[in-house]
Design a protein around this nucleic acid. Structure first.
Ligand code: MN
Ligand code: MN
Ligand code: ZN
Ligand code: ZN
Lengths: 139, 139
DNA sequence: TCATAAAAATGTAATCATTACAAATTAATA
DNA sequence: TATTAATTTGTAATGATTACATTTTTATGA
């Protein structure tokens, strides 16, 4: 996804593609690391010295509001963001802190107890030890 | 679950059953409302005038640490707690704010992308409109 | 029972992520 | 260019949670 596609994508989602918005969205797309607002700020401020943290927060809130990104609340006290709007699950390693994606067959989730409930969002969060960290502990 | 059972349960989980701890755990068991620390405090402070909010926080953290309750981070900026440690999902209504339980066939979740990952916790959160609120909107 | 130590609870201050808000800057429009 | 709207900025406020020192309660044992 190059900068032109990002511009089109933001416009498509009713978001005026200002320079900062383009850069923040580009960061989300290129680094699929589910970053916090603070991390995005720290990563971009060298390249964009005038960037303010408030703008990062404002922009991320706008993305979520317009459906261009999703908010991941996998852990208390840290909001993370993801430009991948497809249905997928997240796994956070308790040891290294990395957040992994995994495919999800949402239809398999049987919501027997929720007849007539209208589902608008789904958040599937797992926690534990990732493959790499398990190997480390064994040695 | 009467107070005697609660006492036994806390002891079983390596938690000394002080009066406050018993009352807070009893609140979780009797009101399956996934409350915040603040709500628990407000609900109990009349009955226990000496209760402090710090004690509620300390106690809930202890419960989670010892595996007697689980922390539900279904929404940013509010930690909710649940004494039900069985595997089940949560649905939060965006209109009325109520958090519903629903049964969950966890085995149905295919984690194809997570070979050799060791899962220790699972959090399944859905959001949308509950049955009651949909009916209201239709009228 | 009384002394002593350990555990639990309290109250206040600190922390920290996020938001509110007013001012400044930039972009769009005519 | 003049005018208006949108965006961005910097700082202050908010609010949930935690840190910490003090007080209270409970347990232990001479
Ligand atoms: Mn993701
Ligand atoms: Mn529950
Ligand atoms: Zn890991
Ligand atoms: Zn509802």
């Amino acid at each position: 996804m190059d900068i032109r596609e990002i511009e089109r994508f933001l416009k498509f989602n009713q978001i005026k593609p200002s320079h900062h918005r383009l850069k923040i969205y580009e960061y989300l797309v290129k680094n699929k690391n589910h970053p916090t607002a603070d991390l995005i700020y720290r990563e971009l401020v060298d390249e964009i010295p005038t960037l303010s943290k408030t703008t990062v927060y404002n922009t991320l809130n706008l993305f979520v509001e317009k459906g261009a990104a999703q908010l991941i609340t996998i852990d208390e006290s840290e909001n993370r963001y993801d430009a991948d709007m497809s249905i997928h699950g997240h796994f956070k390693c308790k040891h290294c802190g990395k957040v992994y994606d995994f495919p999800l067959n949402f239809a398999a989730i049987d919501m027997g107890g929720l007849q007539n409930f209208q589902v608008e969002e789904n958040h599937i969060y797992l926690k534990g030890l990732c493959n790499d960290c398990q190997i480390q502990k064994e040695n």
